[in-house]
Write a protein that binds this DNA or RNA. Structure first.
Length: 169
DNA sequence: AATACGATTGTCT
DNA sequence: GACAATCGTATTC
């Protein structure tokens, strides 16, 4: 479906920019649970964003998926968004999956459907597979769209990849 | 009960 | 570059 090309790390209760900073609540409970589960939140009244919990049970932490490079299923995504059935070129494709809100819309990720889902379950729709693509040339920058701790380098992206959202350096 | 704001995106200037 | 759309949470009264 898509190859992960851009993510951001959020470091739990010690990270002022993280949703888990205020402590465990009903909203962020998944971040405090076992690793490998989907934390889906609703933002700005219209967008969903997808994270995977990353720390042992009882400790908060997660990684936000910010952009994917479409690999297959492109036509179905385009049709669902009313775009030309056969989009060509990196620009048109990037409009589908570049950005945390966009990739959730493209894959139909919602809070009701996916919050708490287990990435590692064999029947999971969120399974992540190793396709052998070498994740080299990884750049690190500050995270996007936050006001607190705005300078911390915690955004990771593949150098030169056209499907990354926002600044490539 | 009322209010302020956000890990975004699209549109307009 | 500025700003509107839109609503679930958290905070405060």
């Amino acid at each position: 479906m898509g190859r992960i090309v851009e993510v951001e790390a959020y470091f739990g209760e010690a990270d002022p920019a993280s949703h888990s900073f205020p402590g465990k609540t009903a909203r962020n409970a998944i971040l405090f649970g076992p690793p490998g589960h989907a934390y889906v939140y609703f933002i700005y009244g219209m967008h969903f964003c997808l994270n995977v919990s990353c720390e042992p049970d009882g400790r908060a932490g997660g990684v936000l998926f910010r952009a994917l490079e479409p690999v297959c299923g492109v036509e179905a995504m385009a049709k669902a968004r009313g775009l030309p059935v056969s989009p060509t070129g990196a620009r048109a494709l990037a409009n589908l999956t570049s950005g945390p809100g966009r990739l959730c819309q493209a894959f139909g990720v919602t809070r009701v459907r996916d919050n708490g889902a287990d990435f590692t379950a064999s029947e999971s729709e969120l399974q992540i597979q190793d396709d052998g693509f070498p994740a080299r040339d990884v750049l690190v920058t500050p995270r996007i769209g936050i006001s607190k701790d705005a300078d911390r380098p915690a955004r990771f992206l593949l150098a030169g990849n056209p499907f990354v959202s926002g600044p490539r350096l």
